[in-house]
Design a protein around this nucleic acid. Structure first.
Length: 579
DNA sequence: GCCGTTTTCGGCCCGACTGTTTTCAGTCG
Protein backbone atom coordinates (compact mmCIF):
# COMPACT_ATOMS: atom_id res chain seq x y z
CA UNK A 1 0.00 0.00 0.00
CA UNK A 2 1.44 3.37 -0.99
CA UNK A 3 1.68 6.37 1.30
CA UNK A 4 -0.89 8.17 -0.85
CA UNK A 5 -3.34 5.30 -0.40
CA UNK A 6 -2.86 5.28 3.36
CA UNK A 7 -3.38 9.05 3.44
CA UNK A 8 -6.60 8.58 1.46
CA UNK A 9 -7.84 6.06 4.04
CA UNK A 10 -7.27 8.55 6.88
CA UNK A 11 -8.98 11.31 4.90
CA UNK A 12 -11.99 9.11 4.31
CA UNK A 13 -12.19 8.19 7.98
CA UNK A 14 -11.99 11.90 8.85
CA UNK A 15 -14.80 12.68 6.40
CA UNK A 16 -17.08 10.05 7.84
CA UNK A 17 -16.32 10.90 11.47
CA UNK A 18 -16.96 14.55 10.76
CA UNK A 19 -20.26 13.68 9.15
CA UNK A 20 -21.19 11.66 12.21
CA UNK A 21 -20.53 14.67 14.43
CA UNK A 22 -17.54 13.10 16.15
CA UNK A 23 -15.18 15.09 18.33
CA UNK A 24 -13.69 17.65 15.92
CA UNK A 25 -10.23 17.19 17.41
CA UNK A 26 -10.34 13.53 16.66
CA UNK A 27 -11.30 14.38 13.11
CA UNK A 28 -8.41 16.78 12.94
CA UNK A 29 -6.04 14.13 14.22
CA UNK A 30 -6.94 11.95 11.22
CA UNK A 31 -6.51 14.86 8.83
CA UNK A 32 -3.15 15.76 10.34
CA UNK A 33 -2.06 12.16 10.02
CA UNK A 34 -3.19 12.08 6.39
CA UNK A 35 -1.08 15.13 5.71
CA UNK A 36 1.98 13.70 7.45
CA UNK A 37 1.66 10.44 5.56
CA UNK A 38 0.96 12.09 2.23
CA UNK A 39 4.03 14.31 2.47
CA UNK A 40 6.38 11.65 3.71
CA UNK A 41 9.25 10.95 1.32
CA UNK A 42 10.02 7.55 2.77
CA UNK A 43 7.74 4.65 1.98
CA UNK A 44 5.70 3.52 5.00
CA UNK A 45 5.77 -0.02 3.69
CA UNK A 46 9.53 0.13 3.87
CA UNK A 47 9.49 1.71 7.32
CA UNK A 48 7.18 -0.98 8.68
CA UNK A 49 9.35 -3.68 7.13
CA UNK A 50 12.40 -2.22 8.84
CA UNK A 51 10.50 -2.03 12.12
CA UNK A 52 10.91 1.71 12.45
CA UNK A 53 9.01 3.53 15.18
CA UNK A 54 6.16 5.28 13.40
CA UNK A 55 5.15 7.26 16.47
CA UNK A 56 8.21 9.42 15.81
CA UNK A 57 6.28 10.94 12.90
CA UNK A 58 4.42 14.15 13.77
CA UNK A 59 0.75 13.56 14.55
CA UNK A 60 1.14 9.79 14.62
CA UNK A 61 0.56 8.24 18.03
CA UNK A 62 0.17 4.70 19.21
CA UNK A 63 -3.27 4.20 17.64
CA UNK A 64 -2.50 5.55 14.20
CA UNK A 65 0.87 3.78 14.08
CA UNK A 66 -0.97 0.53 14.68
CA UNK A 67 -3.46 1.36 11.93
CA UNK A 68 -0.70 2.11 9.46
CA UNK A 69 0.92 -1.20 10.25
CA UNK A 70 -2.36 -3.04 9.73
CA UNK A 71 -2.93 -1.25 6.43
CA UNK A 72 0.56 -2.07 5.19
CA UNK A 73 0.33 -5.70 6.19
CA UNK A 74 -3.25 -6.52 5.26
CA UNK A 75 -4.37 -3.72 2.94
CA UNK A 76 -7.55 -3.35 5.00
CA UNK A 77 -8.81 -1.56 8.06
CA UNK A 78 -11.80 -2.94 9.88
CA UNK A 79 -12.68 0.47 11.29
CA UNK A 80 -13.06 1.93 7.81
CA UNK A 81 -15.20 -0.98 6.61
CA UNK A 82 -17.52 -0.45 9.56
CA UNK A 83 -17.74 3.30 8.98
CA UNK A 84 -18.46 2.78 5.30
CA UNK A 85 -21.34 0.50 6.20
CA UNK A 86 -22.82 3.28 8.31
CA UNK A 87 -22.50 6.12 5.82
CA UNK A 88 -22.87 5.66 2.06
CA UNK A 89 -20.00 7.23 0.13
CA UNK A 90 -22.33 9.43 -1.90
CA UNK A 91 -23.59 11.11 1.28
CA UNK A 92 -20.15 12.57 1.88
CA UNK A 93 -20.46 14.39 -1.41
CA UNK A 94 -23.22 16.50 0.13
CA UNK A 95 -20.57 18.22 2.22
CA UNK A 96 -18.80 19.42 -0.93
CA UNK A 97 -21.68 21.81 -1.63
CA UNK A 98 -20.69 25.26 -0.37
CA UNK A 99 -22.70 26.01 2.75
CA UNK A 100 -23.34 22.38 3.62
CA UNK A 101 -21.21 21.19 6.50
CA UNK A 102 -21.45 18.01 8.53
CA UNK A 103 -24.43 19.16 10.59
CA UNK A 104 -26.67 20.19 7.73
CA UNK A 105 -25.66 17.22 5.59
CA UNK A 106 -26.49 14.87 8.44
CA UNK A 107 -29.90 16.51 8.91
CA UNK A 108 -30.67 16.04 5.21
CA UNK A 109 -29.62 12.41 5.33
CA UNK A 110 -31.34 11.49 8.55
CA UNK A 111 -34.56 13.44 8.20
CA UNK A 112 -35.14 13.31 4.46
CA UNK A 113 -33.11 10.25 3.52
CA UNK A 114 -31.10 12.25 1.01
CA UNK A 115 -28.02 10.26 0.04
CA UNK A 116 -27.00 11.62 -3.36
CA UNK A 117 -26.61 14.97 -5.06
CA UNK A 118 -29.47 14.11 -7.42
CA UNK A 119 -31.80 13.41 -4.53
CA UNK A 120 -30.72 16.67 -2.96
CA UNK A 121 -31.56 18.63 -6.11
CA UNK A 122 -34.97 17.01 -6.30
CA UNK A 123 -35.76 17.67 -2.65
CA UNK A 124 -34.88 21.34 -3.08
CA UNK A 125 -37.01 21.64 -6.19
CA UNK A 126 -39.94 20.10 -4.33
CA UNK A 127 -39.37 22.56 -1.44
CA UNK A 128 -38.97 19.76 1.07
CA UNK A 129 -35.68 21.06 2.37
CA UNK A 130 -36.98 24.44 3.55
CA UNK A 131 -39.32 22.69 5.98
CA UNK A 132 -36.47 21.24 8.03
CA UNK A 133 -35.52 22.97 11.26
CA UNK A 134 -32.57 25.30 10.71
CA UNK A 135 -33.20 25.44 6.97
CA UNK A 136 -35.24 27.98 5.07
CA UNK A 137 -36.10 29.19 1.60
CA UNK A 138 -32.76 30.96 1.22
CA UNK A 139 -30.79 27.90 2.24
CA UNK A 140 -32.71 25.87 -0.29
CA UNK A 141 -31.89 28.32 -3.06
CA UNK A 142 -28.28 28.44 -1.95
CA UNK A 143 -28.05 24.66 -2.16
CA UNK A 144 -29.53 24.59 -5.65
CA UNK A 145 -27.07 27.25 -6.71
CA UNK A 146 -24.26 25.40 -4.97
CA UNK A 147 -25.11 22.25 -6.90
CA UNK A 148 -24.54 24.14 -10.13
CA UNK A 149 -21.24 25.74 -9.25
CA UNK A 150 -19.79 23.02 -7.01
CA UNK A 151 -18.06 21.24 -9.87
CA UNK A 152 -16.15 24.21 -11.26
CA UNK A 153 -15.62 25.83 -7.90
CA UNK A 154 -13.98 22.77 -6.38
CA UNK A 155 -11.20 22.88 -8.91
CA UNK A 156 -7.86 24.31 -7.94
CA UNK A 157 -6.00 26.25 -10.58
CA UNK A 158 -2.29 26.42 -11.34
CA UNK A 159 -0.33 29.09 -9.50
CA UNK A 160 0.62 30.63 -12.82
CA UNK A 161 -3.07 31.10 -13.71
CA UNK A 162 -3.87 32.51 -10.28
CA UNK A 163 -1.00 34.94 -10.78
CA UNK A 164 -2.83 36.42 -13.77
CA UNK A 165 -5.96 37.17 -11.75
CA UNK A 166 -3.94 38.36 -8.76
CA UNK A 167 -2.02 40.91 -10.82
CA UNK A 168 -5.14 42.20 -12.54
CA UNK A 169 -7.02 42.45 -9.26
CA UNK A 170 -4.21 44.35 -7.61
CA UNK A 171 -4.14 46.80 -10.49
CA UNK A 172 -7.90 47.20 -10.43
CA UNK A 173 -8.00 47.94 -6.69
CA UNK A 174 -4.99 50.23 -6.75
CA UNK A 175 -6.88 52.52 -9.14
CA UNK A 176 -9.10 53.63 -6.30
CA UNK A 177 -7.60 56.68 -4.50
CA UNK A 178 -8.84 55.51 -1.07
CA UNK A 179 -6.78 52.33 -1.31
CA UNK A 180 -3.47 52.65 0.53
CA UNK A 181 -2.15 49.10 0.41
CA UNK A 182 -3.11 45.95 -1.49
CA UNK A 183 -1.71 42.47 -1.09
CA UNK A 184 -2.90 39.08 -2.26
CA UNK A 185 -2.41 36.62 0.59
CA UNK A 186 -3.43 32.97 0.95
CA UNK A 187 -1.85 29.99 -0.72
CA UNK A 188 -1.07 32.25 -3.66
CA UNK A 189 1.36 34.24 -1.54
CA UNK A 190 2.84 31.02 -0.19
CA UNK A 191 3.56 30.04 -3.77
CA UNK A 192 1.66 26.77 -3.63
CA UNK A 193 1.71 24.96 -6.96
CA UNK A 194 -2.08 25.14 -7.17
CA UNK A 195 -4.42 27.73 -5.70
CA UNK A 196 -8.02 27.19 -4.59
CA UNK A 197 -9.06 30.81 -4.08
CA UNK A 198 -7.61 34.29 -3.72
CA UNK A 199 -7.50 36.32 -0.51
CA UNK A 200 -7.11 40.02 -1.16
CA UNK A 201 -6.16 42.35 1.65
CA UNK A 202 -6.68 46.10 1.44
CA UNK A 203 -5.91 49.03 3.70
CA UNK A 204 -8.27 51.87 2.85
CA UNK A 205 -10.23 54.73 4.34
CA UNK A 206 -13.71 53.27 4.60
CA UNK A 207 -14.72 49.92 3.20
CA UNK A 208 -17.86 50.77 1.23
CA UNK A 209 -16.15 52.39 -1.75
CA UNK A 210 -13.57 49.60 -1.89
CA UNK A 211 -16.21 46.88 -1.87
CA UNK A 212 -18.28 48.65 -4.53
CA UNK A 213 -15.17 48.96 -6.68
CA UNK A 214 -14.20 45.35 -6.02
CA UNK A 215 -17.66 44.26 -7.20
CA UNK A 216 -17.01 46.07 -10.48
CA UNK A 217 -13.94 43.98 -11.32
CA UNK A 218 -14.86 42.79 -14.83
CA UNK A 219 -14.42 39.06 -14.14
CA UNK A 220 -16.83 39.04 -11.18
CA UNK A 221 -19.81 36.78 -11.84
CA UNK A 222 -21.62 37.03 -8.50
CA UNK A 223 -21.30 38.35 -4.98
CA UNK A 224 -21.42 35.52 -2.45
CA UNK A 225 -21.31 37.57 0.75
CA UNK A 226 -20.73 41.13 1.85
CA UNK A 227 -20.31 42.49 5.34
CA UNK A 228 -18.52 45.35 7.04
CA UNK A 229 -14.99 44.08 6.59
CA UNK A 230 -15.31 41.05 4.36
CA UNK A 231 -16.70 40.42 0.91
CA UNK A 232 -16.63 37.28 -1.23
CA UNK A 233 -17.22 36.98 -4.95
CA UNK A 234 -17.03 34.27 -7.54
CA UNK A 235 -15.36 35.02 -10.86
CA UNK A 236 -16.73 33.81 -14.18
CA UNK A 237 -14.11 31.06 -14.15
CA UNK A 238 -15.49 29.75 -10.84
CA UNK A 239 -12.58 31.05 -8.79
CA UNK A 240 -13.62 32.50 -5.44
CA UNK A 241 -12.02 35.75 -4.30
CA UNK A 242 -12.29 37.05 -0.74
CA UNK A 243 -11.65 40.69 0.05
CA UNK A 244 -10.87 42.05 3.51
CA UNK A 245 -10.56 45.68 4.38
CA UNK A 246 -8.35 46.20 7.42
CA UNK A 247 -7.01 49.21 9.35
CA UNK A 248 -3.36 50.17 8.99
CA UNK A 249 -2.37 49.03 12.43
CA UNK A 250 -3.72 45.55 11.67
CA UNK A 251 -2.29 45.10 8.20
CA UNK A 252 0.67 42.93 9.25
CA UNK A 253 -1.44 40.75 11.51
CA UNK A 254 -4.10 40.35 8.85
CA UNK A 255 -1.54 39.62 6.14
CA UNK A 256 0.04 36.99 8.33
CA UNK A 257 -3.30 35.54 9.27
CA UNK A 258 -4.70 35.32 5.75
CA UNK A 259 -1.46 34.09 4.24
CA UNK A 260 -1.60 31.03 6.48
CA UNK A 261 -1.12 28.22 6.26
CA UNK A 262 -3.73 27.21 8.75
CA UNK A 263 -1.22 24.95 10.46
CA UNK A 264 1.36 27.72 10.61
CA UNK A 265 -1.23 29.98 12.25
CA UNK A 266 -2.12 27.34 14.78
CA UNK A 267 1.51 27.09 15.86
CA UNK A 268 1.78 30.88 16.09
CA UNK A 269 -1.31 31.13 18.23
CA UNK A 270 -0.23 28.34 20.47
CA UNK A 271 3.11 30.06 20.97
CA UNK A 272 1.37 33.37 21.63
CA UNK A 273 -0.81 31.76 24.23
CA UNK A 274 2.21 30.31 26.01
CA UNK A 275 3.57 33.86 26.29
CA UNK A 276 0.29 35.20 27.67
CA UNK A 277 -0.52 36.86 24.36
CA UNK A 278 -3.48 36.56 22.03
CA UNK A 279 -3.06 36.81 18.29
CA UNK A 280 -5.81 37.34 15.74
CA UNK A 281 -6.16 39.14 12.41
CA UNK A 282 -6.27 42.51 14.17
CA UNK A 283 -3.00 42.24 15.99
CA UNK A 284 -1.20 40.80 18.97
CA UNK A 285 -2.80 41.58 22.31
CA UNK A 286 -1.91 41.27 25.97
CA UNK A 287 -5.33 41.26 27.53
CA UNK A 288 -7.06 44.10 25.71
CA UNK A 289 -3.85 45.99 25.09
CA UNK A 290 -2.62 46.12 21.48
CA UNK A 291 1.01 45.00 21.29
CA UNK A 292 1.80 44.66 17.58
CA UNK A 293 0.22 44.24 14.15
CA UNK A 294 1.36 46.92 11.71
CA UNK A 295 3.78 44.64 9.87
CA UNK A 296 4.43 40.91 9.78
CA UNK A 297 7.92 41.50 11.16
CA UNK A 298 6.39 43.20 14.18
CA UNK A 299 4.03 40.30 14.85
CA UNK A 300 6.75 37.66 14.54
CA UNK A 301 9.05 39.76 16.72
CA UNK A 302 6.43 39.92 19.47
CA UNK A 303 6.64 36.13 19.61
CA UNK A 304 10.43 36.19 19.60
CA UNK A 305 10.63 35.00 16.00
CA UNK A 306 12.32 36.35 12.90
CA UNK A 307 10.18 37.08 9.84
CA UNK A 308 9.48 33.83 8.03
CA UNK A 309 9.14 33.88 4.22
CA UNK A 310 5.59 32.97 3.13
CA UNK A 311 6.81 30.02 1.03
CA UNK A 312 7.98 28.28 4.21
CA UNK A 313 4.81 28.75 6.25
CA UNK A 314 3.53 25.19 6.25
CA UNK A 315 4.40 24.18 9.83
CA UNK A 316 6.99 21.76 8.49
CA UNK A 317 10.50 22.92 9.23
CA UNK A 318 10.27 26.67 9.52
CA UNK A 319 9.80 26.89 13.30
CA UNK A 320 12.71 24.55 13.99
CA UNK A 321 14.87 26.60 11.67
CA UNK A 322 13.71 29.87 13.20
CA UNK A 323 14.32 28.63 16.74
CA UNK A 324 17.85 27.59 15.83
CA UNK A 325 18.50 30.85 13.98
CA UNK A 326 18.92 28.85 10.79
CA UNK A 327 16.22 30.24 8.53
CA UNK A 328 17.55 29.88 4.98
CA UNK A 329 18.37 32.81 2.74
CA UNK A 330 16.07 31.52 0.03
CA UNK A 331 17.06 31.49 -3.62
CA UNK A 332 15.75 34.27 -5.86
CA UNK A 333 15.21 34.48 -9.58
CA UNK A 334 18.21 36.73 -10.10
CA UNK A 335 20.47 34.05 -8.62
CA UNK A 336 19.86 31.87 -11.68
CA UNK A 337 22.73 31.88 -14.17
CA UNK A 338 21.98 28.95 -16.45
CA UNK A 339 19.18 26.88 -17.94
CA UNK A 340 19.96 23.25 -18.64
CA UNK A 341 16.86 21.80 -20.28
CA UNK A 342 15.32 23.22 -23.47
CA UNK A 343 14.10 22.08 -26.87
CA UNK A 344 14.37 23.40 -30.43
CA UNK A 345 12.29 22.95 -33.56
CA UNK A 346 14.48 19.95 -34.38
CA UNK A 347 12.08 18.01 -32.15
CA UNK A 348 8.94 19.43 -30.57
CA UNK A 349 10.16 22.97 -29.85
CA UNK A 350 8.92 26.00 -31.76
CA UNK A 351 12.11 28.06 -32.12
CA UNK A 352 15.36 27.29 -33.91
CA UNK A 353 18.59 26.52 -32.15
CA UNK A 354 19.93 30.00 -32.76
CA UNK A 355 16.71 31.69 -31.69
CA UNK A 356 16.77 29.79 -28.40
CA UNK A 357 20.39 30.72 -27.78
CA UNK A 358 19.81 34.39 -28.56
CA UNK A 359 16.70 34.49 -26.37
CA UNK A 360 18.55 32.88 -23.47
CA UNK A 361 21.39 35.34 -23.85
CA UNK A 362 18.93 38.24 -23.93
CA UNK A 363 17.58 36.99 -20.60
CA UNK A 364 21.04 37.33 -19.15
CA UNK A 365 21.81 33.63 -18.87
CA UNK A 366 25.50 32.73 -18.89
CA UNK A 367 25.18 29.10 -19.91
CA UNK A 368 22.52 26.85 -21.39
CA UNK A 369 22.15 23.28 -22.58
CA UNK A 370 20.24 22.29 -25.70
CA UNK A 371 18.45 19.06 -24.81
CA UNK A 372 16.21 17.80 -27.56
CA UNK A 373 14.38 14.49 -27.22
CA UNK A 374 15.88 11.15 -28.20
CA UNK A 375 14.33 8.91 -30.87
CA UNK A 376 12.04 6.88 -28.60
CA UNK A 377 9.85 9.94 -28.19
CA UNK A 378 8.43 9.56 -31.67
CA UNK A 379 5.61 12.02 -31.08
CA UNK A 380 8.20 14.73 -30.63
CA UNK A 381 10.26 13.47 -33.60
CA UNK A 382 13.11 12.56 -31.24
CA UNK A 383 16.66 12.51 -32.58
CA UNK A 384 18.90 9.51 -33.24
CA UNK A 385 22.67 9.54 -32.69
CA UNK A 386 23.44 10.78 -36.15
CA UNK A 387 21.00 13.66 -35.89
CA UNK A 388 22.34 14.55 -32.48
CA UNK A 389 25.92 14.68 -33.73
CA UNK A 390 24.72 16.90 -36.53
CA UNK A 391 23.04 19.28 -34.08
CA UNK A 392 26.19 19.39 -31.99
CA UNK A 393 28.17 20.42 -35.06
CA UNK A 394 25.76 23.30 -35.50
CA UNK A 395 26.40 24.22 -31.87
CA UNK A 396 30.14 24.25 -32.63
CA UNK A 397 29.48 26.81 -35.35
CA UNK A 398 27.21 28.89 -33.12
CA UNK A 399 29.83 28.97 -30.39
CA UNK A 400 32.16 30.72 -32.81
CA UNK A 401 29.52 33.28 -33.77
CA UNK A 402 27.74 34.02 -30.51
CA UNK A 403 29.80 35.21 -27.58
CA UNK A 404 28.84 35.86 -23.98
CA UNK A 405 26.99 32.61 -23.39
CA UNK A 406 28.23 29.04 -23.08
CA UNK A 407 26.23 26.54 -25.12
CA UNK A 408 26.30 22.94 -23.92
CA UNK A 409 25.72 20.07 -26.32
CA UNK A 410 23.02 18.14 -24.60
CA UNK A 411 20.22 15.65 -24.96
CA UNK A 412 17.14 14.59 -23.03
CA UNK A 413 17.66 10.88 -23.37
CA UNK A 414 14.75 8.56 -22.73
CA UNK A 415 14.97 5.93 -20.02
CA UNK A 416 13.48 3.00 -21.93
CA UNK A 417 10.59 0.88 -20.65
CA UNK A 418 12.77 -2.18 -20.34
CA UNK A 419 15.61 -0.18 -18.75
CA UNK A 420 18.66 1.31 -20.40
CA UNK A 421 19.00 4.51 -22.38
CA UNK A 422 17.72 5.43 -25.82
CA UNK A 423 21.11 6.63 -27.19
CA UNK A 424 24.32 4.60 -27.45
CA UNK A 425 27.12 5.15 -24.94
CA UNK A 426 29.59 6.34 -27.52
CA UNK A 427 27.38 9.22 -28.60
CA UNK A 428 26.35 10.08 -25.04
CA UNK A 429 30.03 10.28 -24.10
CA UNK A 430 30.43 13.14 -26.58
CA UNK A 431 27.66 15.21 -25.00
CA UNK A 432 28.45 17.92 -22.48
CA UNK A 433 25.19 17.54 -20.60
CA UNK A 434 22.75 14.63 -20.48
CA UNK A 435 19.39 14.68 -18.74
CA UNK A 436 17.60 11.36 -18.55
CA UNK A 437 13.85 11.06 -18.23
CA UNK A 438 10.98 8.61 -18.09
CA UNK A 439 8.24 9.17 -20.64
CA UNK A 440 6.98 5.62 -21.24
CA UNK A 441 5.99 2.82 -18.91
CA UNK A 442 4.76 5.25 -16.29
CA UNK A 443 2.33 2.69 -14.90
CA UNK A 444 5.03 0.23 -13.93
CA UNK A 445 5.56 -0.77 -10.32
CA UNK A 446 7.47 1.37 -7.89
CA UNK A 447 10.33 -1.14 -7.93
CA UNK A 448 10.66 -1.17 -11.70
CA UNK A 449 10.48 2.58 -12.21
CA UNK A 450 12.87 3.22 -9.34
CA UNK A 451 15.21 0.58 -10.80
CA UNK A 452 15.16 2.23 -14.22
CA UNK A 453 16.00 5.61 -12.73
CA UNK A 454 18.75 4.22 -10.50
CA UNK A 455 20.31 2.54 -13.54
CA UNK A 456 20.20 5.80 -15.44
CA UNK A 457 21.93 7.58 -12.54
CA UNK A 458 24.62 4.90 -12.60
CA UNK A 459 25.39 5.65 -16.25
CA UNK A 460 28.56 7.76 -16.43
CA UNK A 461 27.20 10.13 -19.07
CA UNK A 462 23.98 11.01 -17.29
CA UNK A 463 24.15 14.27 -15.33
CA UNK A 464 20.60 14.71 -14.07
CA UNK A 465 17.16 13.13 -13.96
CA UNK A 466 14.55 15.37 -15.57
CA UNK A 467 11.05 15.86 -14.10
CA UNK A 468 11.68 13.01 -11.65
CA UNK A 469 8.04 12.08 -10.93
CA UNK A 470 6.42 12.77 -14.29
CA UNK A 471 3.31 14.35 -12.85
CA UNK A 472 1.14 16.87 -14.67
CA UNK A 473 -0.78 18.91 -12.10
CA UNK A 474 -4.50 18.35 -12.35
CA UNK A 475 -4.01 15.89 -15.21
CA UNK A 476 -1.67 13.07 -14.36
CA UNK A 477 -0.58 11.64 -11.06
CA UNK A 478 3.15 11.19 -10.41
CA UNK A 479 4.48 7.76 -11.18
CA UNK A 480 5.50 5.59 -8.25
CA UNK A 481 9.15 6.14 -7.42
CA UNK A 482 11.21 5.72 -4.29
CA UNK A 483 12.55 9.27 -4.11
CA UNK A 484 14.61 8.52 -1.02
CA UNK A 485 16.56 5.91 -2.99
CA UNK A 486 16.91 8.21 -6.00
CA UNK A 487 18.22 11.05 -3.85
CA UNK A 488 20.67 8.75 -2.12
CA UNK A 489 21.97 7.41 -5.42
CA UNK A 490 22.35 10.94 -6.76
CA UNK A 491 24.27 11.88 -3.61
CA UNK A 492 26.66 8.94 -3.95
CA UNK A 493 27.44 9.71 -7.58
CA UNK A 494 27.50 13.52 -7.34
CA UNK A 495 24.64 13.74 -9.83
CA UNK A 496 21.86 16.29 -9.99
CA UNK A 497 18.08 16.19 -9.83
CA UNK A 498 15.94 18.49 -11.90
CA UNK A 499 13.21 20.71 -10.59
CA UNK A 500 11.19 21.23 -13.74
CA UNK A 501 9.93 24.82 -13.72
CA UNK A 502 6.98 24.23 -16.04
CA UNK A 503 3.97 25.35 -13.97
CA UNK A 504 2.18 22.09 -14.75
CA UNK A 505 5.09 19.95 -13.60
CA UNK A 506 7.07 21.52 -10.74
CA UNK A 507 8.68 18.24 -9.79
CA UNK A 508 10.74 17.80 -7.67
CA UNK A 509 8.07 19.05 -5.28
CA UNK A 510 9.04 20.98 -2.16
CA UNK A 511 9.35 17.89 0.00
CA UNK A 512 11.73 16.32 -2.51
CA UNK A 513 13.72 19.56 -2.67
CA UNK A 514 14.16 19.48 1.08
CA UNK A 515 15.22 15.85 0.86
CA UNK A 516 17.82 16.69 -1.78
CA UNK A 517 19.11 19.53 0.37
CA UNK A 518 19.38 17.24 3.34
CA UNK A 519 21.43 14.69 1.37
CA UNK A 520 23.64 17.31 -0.26
CA UNK A 521 22.25 16.69 -3.75
CA UNK A 522 22.31 19.78 -5.95
CA UNK A 523 19.01 20.61 -7.60
CA UNK A 524 18.98 22.00 -11.12
CA UNK A 525 16.03 24.27 -11.89
CA UNK A 526 15.21 24.05 -15.59
CA UNK A 527 12.54 25.53 -17.83
CA UNK A 528 12.17 22.60 -20.25
CA UNK A 529 11.35 25.42 -22.67
CA UNK A 530 9.75 24.47 -25.97
CA UNK A 531 9.72 28.08 -27.20
CA UNK A 532 11.34 31.43 -26.54
CA UNK A 533 8.57 32.37 -24.13
CA UNK A 534 9.03 29.03 -22.41
CA UNK A 535 12.29 30.33 -20.95
CA UNK A 536 10.16 32.62 -18.78
CA UNK A 537 8.79 29.87 -16.55
CA UNK A 538 12.00 29.83 -14.52
CA UNK A 539 10.36 31.95 -11.83
CA UNK A 540 7.82 29.23 -11.05
CA UNK A 541 10.62 26.77 -10.46
CA UNK A 542 12.37 29.23 -8.18
CA UNK A 543 9.21 29.60 -6.08
CA UNK A 544 8.96 25.84 -5.72
CA UNK A 545 12.64 25.68 -4.70
CA UNK A 546 11.97 28.35 -2.09
CA UNK A 547 9.14 26.24 -0.70
CA UNK A 548 11.67 23.45 -0.28
CA UNK A 549 13.94 25.79 1.66
CA UNK A 550 16.66 25.92 -1.01
CA UNK A 551 19.35 28.57 -0.93
CA UNK A 552 21.43 29.55 -3.97
CA UNK A 553 24.16 27.16 -2.85
CA UNK A 554 21.76 24.20 -3.10
CA UNK A 555 21.03 24.85 -6.76
CA UNK A 556 23.48 23.92 -9.48
CA UNK A 557 22.53 26.57 -12.01
CA UNK A 558 23.16 29.47 -9.66
CA UNK A 559 26.89 28.72 -9.89
CA UNK A 560 29.21 30.85 -11.94
CA UNK A 561 30.48 29.10 -15.07
CA UNK A 562 33.82 28.06 -13.57
CA UNK A 563 32.24 26.40 -10.54
CA UNK A 564 29.54 24.86 -12.65
CA UNK A 565 32.16 23.24 -14.88
CA UNK A 566 33.94 21.69 -11.91
CA UNK A 567 30.71 20.26 -10.51
CA UNK A 568 29.76 18.88 -13.89
CA UNK A 569 33.17 17.29 -14.26
CA UNK A 570 32.75 15.68 -10.86
CA UNK A 571 29.38 14.26 -11.91
CA UNK A 572 30.68 12.80 -15.16
CA UNK A 573 34.24 11.97 -14.28
CA UNK A 574 35.50 13.43 -17.55
CA UNK A 575 36.64 16.94 -18.37
CA UNK A 576 34.26 19.20 -20.26
CA UNK A 577 35.30 20.14 -23.76
CA UNK A 578 33.65 23.57 -23.62
CA UNK A 579 35.76 26.56 -22.74
C1' DG B 1 -6.66 10.81 18.44
C1' DC B 2 -2.41 13.52 19.73
C1' DC B 3 0.49 15.64 23.04
C1' DG B 4 3.37 17.51 27.30
C1' DT B 5 10.40 23.20 30.17
C1' DT B 6 2.72 24.73 32.83
C1' DT B 7 0.22 18.92 31.78
C1' DT B 8 -0.12 11.51 31.25
C1' DC B 9 -5.57 14.45 31.69
C1' DG B 10 -7.52 18.09 29.61
C1' DG B 11 -6.57 20.76 26.50
C1' DC B 12 -6.57 21.17 21.23
C1' DC B 13 -6.90 29.04 17.18
C1' DC B 14 -10.18 32.63 16.39
C1' DG B 15 -13.47 35.67 14.22
C1' DA B 16 -16.87 37.08 10.18
C1' DC B 17 -20.95 36.28 7.85
C1' DT B 18 -25.48 34.16 6.87
C1' DG B 19 -29.82 32.55 7.81
C1' DT B 20 -32.97 31.42 10.86
C1' DT B 21 -33.33 32.88 14.86
C1' DT B 22 -35.41 36.30 18.93
C1' DT B 23 -29.87 35.11 21.12
C1' DC B 24 -27.37 31.66 18.14
C1' DA B 25 -25.81 27.52 15.28
C1' DG B 26 -23.49 26.34 11.29
C1' DT B 27 -20.08 27.13 7.98
C1' DC B 28 -15.95 28.95 6.31
C1' DG B 29 -11.28 30.34 6.09
Amino acid sequence: MTNAEIAAVFEEIADILEFQGENPFRVRAYRNAARTVGELAESLEEMVRQGKDLTQLPGIGKDLAQKIQTLVQTGHLEQLEKLRAQVPESVLELMRIPGLGPKKAAALYKQLGIATLDQLRQACQEHRVRKLKGFGAKTEEAILHGLEVAQVAAKRILWAEADQFASELKQHLAQLPQVQQVEVAGSYRRGKETVGDLDVLVVARGSKAVMDHFGRFPAVAEVLARGETKMSVRLTTGLQVDLRVVPTRSFGAALLYFTGSKQHNVVLRTRAKAKGLKINEYGVFRGDRYVAGRTEEEVYASLGLPWIPPELREARWEFDWADQGKLPQLIELQDIRGDLHMHTNRTDGKASLEEMVQAAKARGLKYIAITDHSKRVTMARGLNSEQLLQQWEEIDQLRRRIRGIHILKGVEVDILEGGGLDIDDQTLAQADWVVASVHYGQNQSRERITGRILDALAHPAVCAIAHPTGRLLGRREPYQVDMEAVVQAAAERNKFLELNANPMRLDLNEIHCALARQHGVLVVISTDAHSIDGLGVMRYGVIQARRGGLEPQHVLNTRPWGQFKKLLQRARGTPLNVT
